[in-house]
Design a protein around this nucleic acid. Sequence first.
DNA 1: CCTATTCCTGTAACCGTTTACACCAGCGCG
DNA 2: CGCGCTGGTGTAAACGGTTACAGGAATAGG
Lengths: 332, 332
Amino acid sequence: MDIRKVAAKAKVSTATVSRTINNSDAVAPATAVKVWAAIRDLNYHPNTHARSLSSGKSHILGLIISDITNPFFPDLVKAFETVAIERHYEVIVTNTEYSPERTKLCVSRLLNRKVEGIAIMTSEMEPSLIEQVQRAGVPIVTLDTGTPGKRFSNIKLDYAGGVRQAIQHLVGLHHERIAFIRGPQRLKSAQIRYDAYLKVAKQHNLTTSSSLVADGEHSIEGGFTAMLNLLPQKPTAVLASNDLCAIGALHALQQKGVDVPGAISIIGFDDINFSRHIRPELTTVRIPRTEISRLAFEALSSSSDSENGREWTIPTELVIRRSTGPCQRNRS
Amino acid sequence: MDIRKVAAKAKVSTATVSRTINNSDAVAPATAVKVWAAIRDLNYHPNTHARSLSSGKSHILGLIISDITNPFFPDLVKAFETVAIERHYEVIVTNTEYSPERTKLCVSRLLNRKVEGIAIMTSEMEPSLIEQVQRAGVPIVTLDTGTPGKRFSNIKLDYAGGVRQAIQHLVGLHHERIAFIRGPQRLKSAQIRYDAYLKVAKQHNLTTSSSLVADGEHSIEGGFTAMLNLLPQKPTAVLASNDLCAIGALHALQQKGVDVPGAISIIGFDDINFSRHIRPELTTVRIPRTEISRLAFEALSSSSDSENGREWTIPTELVIRRSTGPCQRNRS
DNA sequence: CCTATTCCTGTAACCGTTTACACCAGCGCG
DNA sequence: CGCGCTGGTGTAAACGGTTACAGGAATAGG
């Protein structure tokens, strides 16, 4: 069941079979028909390893994420897989688990498998690793990290736009004391969200006193304690750096008997699946993960050898559900 | 940077380098040292495709799941990846998305990549596909599906045990009207859970009238409407086939102003991550996914050519949290 | 009608390993 | 001392494709 058998059956050379498989236009239509018939009859599937070895193309893409257990990632992974297999690529997903050591391992695993591109969807990645990939001549696309260069594209998320929409929404509901639950500052994306909050809040002449900011560590527990710390400051609305934080904050308020959105409004960030299933359903800034995956794939597959990487910006969008409402304190 | 360069640098033949890499005991310790030094100096990494081609071993495992977006799977995937890479295997994860067509594609993708084993962690899989894999000589391990055979192992979950613990827990709290929210009956695992409910409830002389059973489709929405249907039957406790169903039921009760666990107790199944983060925290029957992955890997890697598959049974365990409490109606 | 070009196909080298087999040195033993 | 082993190493043939190059047939152009 190798290419030679097919060649024999179709009465052509292996070269012709190979060309046929690869849709080379150098093969006469009539011949192609014969070859395809033989392939079907023999139920022949080319050996991908042999193919990769001799052609140098593995048709595998690498996807690096932090942790598949983090609800942000499954959608991303699924969408990436979907578009990749549509184009007949295989994908290997690796979890860094936020550990530099493990991240190193992820990269070398992918490089060893001779992937044709790596989508790095996590921001904690040492520059030296990126360089290593570049030296290997493998295209890269990152999320919110670094500046594009040779075979290096970047996808930027317009966090500021989402934050602006969120704050405008709250201001429209007459909120003035809007607190912020911050993510870990070592994450670039968390940093940007915080900066955007600061900037937009100021533009609206809102208090941004540091007492209105708490650290939520991007986890439910973190959001919970952050909200507890925030409570004495009497905010009327809270913007969280993360849906998990927002959910944690929600729990804290429910435990304290504070009504949401009656007394306090809450807005999250990401729009993970569960946000729609929480009570009250969470108003949140959606990050379009399907779009990101699609673009990431595009970036990798268009990064042919000498071409320079590009940079895209993807908008984020406020999804209004039930955790936000008019500010009671400032009414009338 | 291929094996020849290493051989030259170490002043040995490529065969010796190869043997060294593969820890063959036929190489003299002193030689091995020389070779490893050369490898390190040259920063040499063997070409995995060449290796797979000539040895016939790809060192890749396939993992078939339904949908990474279903919160049951991420833990499973993560654990599988962890143990696999510990043993220097790569893993390709594929989502069937509950579609037979796509499932077929998953299998052929994996077969094309010459995986050395496939873990099928989803029950909707046509027997013809399984046969196809077996004909290809690739070891299989399934979850709750089929009977073990040549290169075919199976992992069974003791759902009945978990259901028994759950019902005993409720009975201990003086509950008598225990309703059940059923999963889709085409899923074997859902069927087994339902059967176990029926059996154990009868053993305890509880009503199992069909009016106390509703279909929840294993989703939050399904659980929600199922609970609404169940409400007129005045159950004092509800056992759900799935955490998602349980969460949906919880929402329904909260919306109707029914206190949990004050008026009605709820128990879920699976112990997905979010169960701990719901209010009230969900009492649930845990399915030990890490354990499953570990065993699945073991099954695959021990399924050497002629060896017959094995069958394991993994216990499930009731995790008591805050969604269950004493039955008020039957107290004194 | 001859030559140049185009189109299609085949031959064979090569991709980077593994591994069967051959070989040789050194050793134990009768 | 000669023989058979054993242990370590090298040679070279696979593994199953791709592709540079060569070459023959058919077509076009003069």
